[in-house]
Write a protein that binds this DNA or RNA. Structure first.
Lengths: 195, 195
DNA sequence: TATTTGTTAGTGATCGTTCACAAACTTATA
DNA sequence: TATAAGTTTGTGAACGATCACTAACAAATA
């Protein structure tokens, strides 16, 4: 029975929480099961998190952290079209490395329970859309884009990304998301930006 | 304490199950709460459904029924582009009238628990996509469509529909989905079908 | 020694489900 | 037509299991 620092344990606990949600759904996420997987007792969980909601907040923080890395990565690209590519591919690369997070994205029920969680989720969603709208606005300055609002375009792109991820998940990750990303890239360039 | 036929009760139970999921999320759907809302005892629920899973199957059957009406409605349209319009608008009209069903659509957790439920959901999804692909193929015969596969196009359309519904739900149904449908129609005609 | 991280044991609440039984409605028989 | 028999739809009480969470205490670490 090794003793870890709170930081290490918190990471372990969130990792296992994600595994449970991923494998058995959010409804199966119990402190009991979590404690068994982390190989500590139930009360030990409460040494590192205030309550169950706090654990979910920890999961959302991990997604927020992703947002920061995404923003940084976009800064490195100069051409707006490259930024769009990076926006899409970053999502796919990230999810290939963190499959368990796909389950959280679609687990609506996590967020209906608590106002705090719902607000945090909405922040993440709107932030990501704002990021995409900015990219599209930049593209519009350079290239001719059909008479569609940036809002609409962003929703089309996000919707397509989302449905692709969902298909990937429902197929038990049977194809390469990154390969799909390449063809999606071409699709949008053809479809929207007249390339 | 009035006695109803099984058919009537089953309808009541499913209606209230949908209300609970809609208002409080799937995690709050318990036989106890359900019985309170229907104003019968818990064991009475089991007179009309085998178990909880059976109740969810009843909800899914209601969605399947929708699929049949959609297919019929599409048969009445002759022009393929009208069919596409009808496909989109039918979804929106239906959901405006049945808001509670939007919650089920996004409640992933319902389906992760049971193999039977997951399979029934996948059938519904793939059936709807097949319907849309057929429409797109018809359009392709008549109009010039950019070099994109019907599969890809169907995913773009379904993704956009889905994200619009999600936005509608997250905004607490603060805008008219049908109005949005009109502008989506124009968007796709401009974007994809060179109108 | 003080603090942090862990344990065992137990809290009341709620879960889905079943039991034995009662009232209502339908059908068959006297 | 009255009544008996059978079926369907309801009830209260209770089942074992599990839920999130806590009090009290022990061991490891600084």
């Amino acid at each position: 029975m090794p003793r870890l620092t709170t930081e290490q344990r918190q990471k372990e606990i969130i990792d296992e929480a994600l595994n449970i949600i991923h494998e058995c759904g959010y409804g199966s996420l119990s402190i009991r099961e979590l404690a068994i997987r982390v190989k500590i007792s139930e009360p030990a969980i409460y040494r590192h998190f205030l309550n169950k909601e706090d654990i979910i907040l920890g999961i959302l923080s991990r997604i927020s952290a992703f947002d920061q890395i995404l923003a940084d990565s976009l800064h490195n690209k100069k051409m707006p079209l490259d930024k769009l590519d990076e926006f899409i591919m970053f999502h796919f690369r990230f999810l290939e490395k963190n499959r368990t997070l796909t389950s959280v994205i679609f687990a609506e029920d996590i967020f209906t329970q608590s106002k705090i969680l719902k607000e945090k989720l909405m922040k993440i969603i709107s932030h990501r859309q704002r990021l995409l709208v900015e990219i599209i606005e930049e593209i519009k300055k350079q290239d001719s884009v059909k008479g569609l609002s940036s809002q609409e375009l962003s929703k089309i792109i996000l919707g397509f990304i989302r449905i692709t991820i969902m298909e990937w998940k429902l197929s038990d990750f049977s194809f390469s998301l990154i390969d799909k990303g390449e063809s999606i890239k071409n699709t949008f360039e053809k479809l929207i930006f007249n390339k």
